[in-house]
Design a protein around this nucleic acid. Structure first.
Lengths: 210, 210
DNA sequence: AATCCATACCCCAAAAGGGGTGAAACCTCT
DNA sequence: AGAGGTTTCACCCCTTTTGGGGTATGGATT
């Protein structure tokens, strides 16, 4: 078959059966083909230039370098390669690490053949395929914690702090004195158990209070 | 038809034709039905208790209260209602505002009938349906800016700052003196054109330098 | 040779933080 | 209606941290 216009795909997956299964599925359609597949990230990275894939299907649990690190390395050296994570893990830490390292998609291993192919199509068309559970986790990460210990005024002050405002700027914006702003901030610190602006911002961001 | 086991859906959409079209599509399948539809957010909110929807299909451009505000109000009073935004806007500000206010899904108006129904199914099954462009925007929001003006050491220092560390703690962690840490921070400030920790953190977060 | 980077030090002023106190305003519950 | 709690506001004193201005040196990169 003429491969000239088909998208080049590389698979990194340490389970032989899974890797070969994916190859068969992908090679069975005419839009793309598996240019090479590897059971570890190091070898895949070594051959990136030669393989010149548009897309890499990447497992996370690998011998040697893990998938997250591999994504980081690949994206740094070849920013145009799109990475789709394919793993059994739905752990939120891992999902966000993968996305932060540069993954364009994240699908889980219970994905059907047609969904796998859909995901590849989606990436080719500039999308970001995710399993529905993953998408929900990602969307949830934007939402505030409804159980904030802070009063609404305190939250308001904290929001200004997080924008880099000083005591006096906050006072000015809220039409209160600097001393009052300070009082609010002291209360925020004691409620969050921190003792500096940046610690407060860090904690508030982590717990999605702002 | 017996509505007892069908999911209750409310539509908020100011364009009559679109609103009625959606109603027809949704009522044509057996899993759910439109319990009520409104051309503005205020009326929808007024009748929330009576309508008791599981899902609201919400437009963003509305007369009076806009969709973003409406989502916030509804989620505060009825946290279990799932909101799907349906709009022509793909503006990133709006997307993130909607998600932060509590939307579970975000689909654009070029969505086909079957995709609309898929989105509803997805929300019912705990997912977060998004148009492919929206999903890409959301995923991109996790990724770092590759054109950081900061050196790697400076980025490292900034990351510690963002975790709430003081000059001396940073010095300790990086095995340098407090004065050196200060030098790095001064350089960071001048490169980012800010003059305090929290401003630096705010700018770095906004520009995804950390 | 010139430029960035990482390291380190100095002086001084401004900002932030810790310890208090207190009072008016606003809920909520009985 | 009144008691008790929370929130918001405001001020004082004092210490620590931060920020702005420098200078300097060795190493890496160009």
């Amino acid at each position: 078959m003429n491969n000239y216009f088909r998208s080049r795909i590389v698979i990194v997956e340490d389970n032989n059966a899974v890797r070969e299964g994916f190859s068969l599925i992908i090679n069975s359609v005419s839009n793309y083909y598996v240019v090479n597949s590897y059971d570890n990230a190091e070898d895949a990275i070594k051959n990136l230039k030669k393989d010149a894939p548009e897309i890499i299907l990447m497992d996370l649990e690998l011998p040697g370098m893990n998938g997250i690190e591999a994504i980081g390395v690949i994206k740094k050296t070849h920013p145009n390669i799109e990475l789709i994570v394919n793993t059994i893990y739905e752990n939120s830490e891992l999902v966000f690490q993968a996305l932060c390292s540069g993954a364009s998609g994240y699908i889980t291993k219970n994905t059907s053949h047609s969904e796998l192919l859909d995901a590849i199509d989606e990436v080719i068309n500039g999308g970001a395929p995710m399993s529905s559970k993953i998408a929900k986790m990602v969307v949830n990460s934007f939402q505030k914690n409804p159980n904030s210990p802070l009063s609404s005024r305190e939250t308001q002050v904290l929001e200004l702090l997080s924008k880099g405002k000083s005591y006096s700027m906050i006072a000015q914006e809220l039409f209160i004195t600097k001393e009052t702003a300070k009082s609010h901030i002291k209360n925020i610190y004691s409620k969050l158990q921190v003792n500096s602006k940046s610690e407060a911002i860090a904690k508030a961001t982590k717990e999605k209070l702002i």
